[in-house]
């Protein structure tokens, strides 16, 4: 608990930059010859093959690639909801064979519980995940404060009492990001979270997601179609080929944080964007 609060009140400054792979530090996630097959019309189809990569603590990475290349499957394998059938993914050296307990998830569809207001939707994980669950009653005031803190980071402080149907799509997605992060997950999995939003809202969301992420600094894996989104948010972008897909290109994004929407217009940003674009096959 104390640890959490320490994180939460961490001043929001420019000095927080990701520390890529400090020498000797163990990666949080490792992909070791990961593959995925699917039986289809009598034949076995390879969807993913020989994926090897490692993700350092606090890293924000993105997977981009043509549609149908199995990006969502990658997330499901990492979360352990569908463990990798070929090869293995390890979390802190441990093979992921069942759903991980400490992940946060957000999807394109910002599923919220319609009978709970925004605040109570964000509080949901704390009612389920240990150690919060055990002292939910005693520490409720504190937890509410944590939720309000996150909500104000995404400028939803005035919408705590609103029900999901009273919120816009972008607001719901922001609330669902808060829900994904409130229990301080080690890993945040984002499956095209802004895919259904209009371009302006989406850019606004990047800034807010970055702000949220810079407060909690967990490993984040983003699946996206939007290359600008990948460049804006990530420390590292992985490009996947079409089926059977593997990683065909990876690049480190060395833009300073917090990144701003103005940076999108810089040559550096454009350089990253166009190099990645060149590697996407159709």
């Amino acid at each position: 608990m104390i640890l959490f609060c320490h994180h939460m009140v961490q001043p929001f400054t420019n000095s927080i930059t990701p520390e890529p792979a400090a020498s000797g530090s163990q990666p949080l996630l490792e992909f070791d010859q990961v593959g995925l097959e699917y039986p289809f019309e009598g034949a076995i189809r390879r969807i993913i093959q020989e994926m090897n990569l490692s993700i350092q603590p606090g890293e924000f990475i993105s997977f981009v690639g043509p549609s149908g290349c199995g990006k969502t499957s990658v997330l499901r394998m990492v979360s352990g909801l569908n463990p990798a059938p070929i090869g293995e993914i390890r979390c802190r050296g441990q093979r992921i064979s069942q759903p991980l307990k400490n992940v946060g998830m957000a999807f394109q569809n910002p599923v919220m519980l319609p009978w709970r207001n925004t605040l109570n939707n964000v509080l949901l994980p704390l009612e389920i995940v240990q150690p919060y669950k055990n002292n939910f009653r005693q520490k409720k005031a504190e937890f509410i404060h944590m939720a309000q803190d996150l909500l104000s980071t995404v400028r939803l402080q005035d919408f705590q009492k609103q029900y999901p149907w009273q919120l816009s799509g972008g607001m719901r997605q922001r609330a669902s990001l808060c829900r994904a992060l409130i229990h301080q997950p080690e890993i945040l999995l984002l499956d095209e979270p802004f895919g259904a939003l209009d371009a302006f809202t989406r850019e606004e969301m990047w800034v807010m997601l970055q702000a949220l992420w810079m407060r909690v600094k967990c490993v984040s894996i983003l699946i996206t179609h939007d290359l600008r989104e990948a460049v804006f948010l990530s420390d590292k972008v992985y490009v996947m080929s079409s089926r059977p897909s593997s990683i065909i290109y990876e690049t480190q994004i060395d833009l300073p944080r917090p990144r701003t929407l103005e940076m999108e217009l810089s040559d550096e940003f454009h350089h990253y964007f166009s190099t990645i674009r060149r590697h996407i096959q159709h």
Partner: peptide, 21 residues
């Protein structure tokens, strides 16, 4: 919604909790 089920499973919710919440 399948996404909601995924959210709960990834939080480690038990069957009873899933039902209740």
């Amino acid at each position: 919604e399948p996404e909601m089920k995924d959210v709960l499973r990834s939080l480690g919710a038990s069957q009873i909790e899933t039902f209740q919440k």
